[in-house]
C-alpha cells in the first residue's frame, strides 16, 4: 500500500535518508525502528509531501501523495503531536480537520470518545495538554477521516503503559480490518508486540527488514536457558549428546534449541522447572545492527571532536 522506492534525501553533504526501499502491506502493522536521527521522520515527511525527496519515489496506494484528492480521507497522518496551535482547544483542532475534510461534526465527538478524551479535556487549550493527551488527540486527528492508511511517527511517545496497550490494541484492530499501518519508534519494545513486519533503519540506511521470526533467524546460533531439580545430571546428559552446557545463575546455559534440552531432560528423567530460549532477542539484534549508527557507539568520534576543539 505504501511503496518507498530508492528514496534518498540529502542536506548539503549530509545524507539523512540513503537509498531506502520498503513496502507496507494492507492488513499489517509495519514498525519503522531506528535510533534517534536515523531518518525515520524525514522518510515519513517525504511520504506525505512535506519534504521533497532528493531522489526516489514514494507512492501510497499507487498514487503520489499530491495526487490523492482530500488526502485526509485516505491517509491518516500523525507526524508530531505537538505541532498544533497552543491556543486552540482540542475540540477546535479536530473541528478544523473535520471541516477541511468535509466531515460532519458528529465525527469529532466520535473521535474524542475513541481516544478517551473527556468533554472537559477537549475544551482545554493545547498548551495545557500533557504529552500523552497530545498523542491521543493526534491519533484522533489521524483517524478523523476514516482513512485506510495510517502513518504515525512515534505515536506511543508520552503515553503511559495503559495508553501504550490501548494504542497497540487500536492499531492491531485497525490492521485486522484491512488497514495499512506504518508506525515509527526508537523503542523496540513498543513495536515488537504490535508489528507484523519490522524495518530497522540506522544512519539513513535500512539495516534489516522482515517479520520477527525471520529477523531472529539471522540473530545467531540457538541457545537455551534451563533450570531443573538436578542441574548436574542434566548437564551431563546434554554433554553426552554433544551440547555445551555452562552454569548460569540458578540454572544452565546450553548451546542448543530448547526442544533438544527438553528431550535430553526427558531421556535422563530430570524434572525441569524452567526452560526458555536463550537466543539473543531482537533488542541485541537491533543494537548490533544499528551499532555503527548509535551515538553511544562512537566514543572516538567524540574525542576527536574535543581534540579538534582544543587545537
Amino acid at each position: 500500500m505504501i511503496k518507498v522506492d530508492r528514496l534518498t534525501r540529502t542536506y548539503g553533504g549530509f545524507t539523512a535518508v540513503d537509498d531506502v526501499s520498503f513496502t507496507c502491506q494492507p492488513g499489517r502493522v509495519t514498525g519503522f525502528l531506528g535510533p534517534n536521527g536515523a531518518g525515520k521522520t524525514t522518510t515519513m515527511r517525504i511520504m506525505v509531501g512535506l519534504t521533497p525527496p532528493t531522489r526516489g519515489t514514494v507512492t501510497i496506494g499507487g498514487l503520489d501523495y499530491h495526487d490523492i484528492p482530500n488526502p485526509g480521507r485516505h491517509v491518516g497522518v500523525l507526524l508530531d503531536a505537538g505541532a498544533q496551535h497552543a491556543g486552540r482547544t482540542g475540540r477546535e483542532i479536530l473541528t478544523l480537520g473535520a471541516k477541511t475534510m468535509g466531515l460532519p461534526m458528529s465525527r469529532v465527538d466520535e473521535m474524542l470518545a475513541l481516544v478517551s478524551l473527556t468533554d472537559a479535556e477537549a475544551k482545554r487549550r493545547m498548551r495545557n495538554y500533557s504529552l500523552g493527551m497530545k498523542q491521543r488527540l493526534g491519533i484522533a486527528h489521524a483517524l478523523l477521516g476514516d482513512p485506510s492508511v495510517l502513518i504515525l511517527d512515534e505515536p506511543a511517545n508520552g503515553l503511559d503503559p495503559a495508553g501504550i496497550r490501548w494504542m497497540r490494541d487500536l492499531l492491531k484492530g485497525y490492521a485486522n480490518r484491512g488497514g495499512t499501518v506504518l508506525l515509527s519508534s526508537h523503542l523496540l519494545n513498543e513495536v515488537e508486540l504490535v508489528a507484523d513486519e519490522m524495518i530497522l533503519i540506522g544512519r539513513g540506511k535500512i539495516v534489516a527488514q522482515g517479520d520477527k521470526a525471520s529477523l531472529l533467524a539471522q540473530s545467531g546460533p540457538a541457545a537455551a536457558l534451563v533450570t531443573s531439580l538436578d542441574n548436574e545430571r542434566l548437564a551431563g546428559a546434554l554433554q553426552a549428546k554433544g551440547y555445551a552446557a555452562a552454569p548460569a545463575g540458578s540454572g544452565l546455559r546450553v548451546d542448543a534449541e530448547p526442544a533438544e534440552v527438553g528431550r535430553a531432560a526427558l531421556e535422563a528423567g530430570v524434572v525441569l522447572t524452567d526452560l526458555r530460549s536463550g537466543a539473543r532477542g531482537l533488542e541485541d539484534l537491533f543494537l548490533e545492527l544499528t551499532a555503527g549508527t548509535q551515538r553511544e557507539g562512537h566514543p572516538e568520534a567524540a574525542t576527536q571532536l574535543q581534540e579538534g576543539a582544543q587545537a
Binding site: G61, P69, H74, L143, P147, S148, V149, G178
Partner: peptide, 29 residues
C-alpha cells in the same frame, strides 16, 4: 460503519487506493 473501519476493508486488502469517489477539497471550504 464503525469508527475505525478502513474504507478499503469491504473490498479486501488491496494495494491501490480507490480515490474515484473522493472529490478534491473545494476552495470555498
Amino acid at each position: 460503519m464503525s469508527t475505525t473501519t478502513p474504507s478499503s476493508s469491504a473490498a479486501g486488502p488491496s494495494m491501490t487506493l480507490d480515490v474515484s469517489g473522493t472529490p478534491k477539497v473545494p476552495f470555498t471550504r
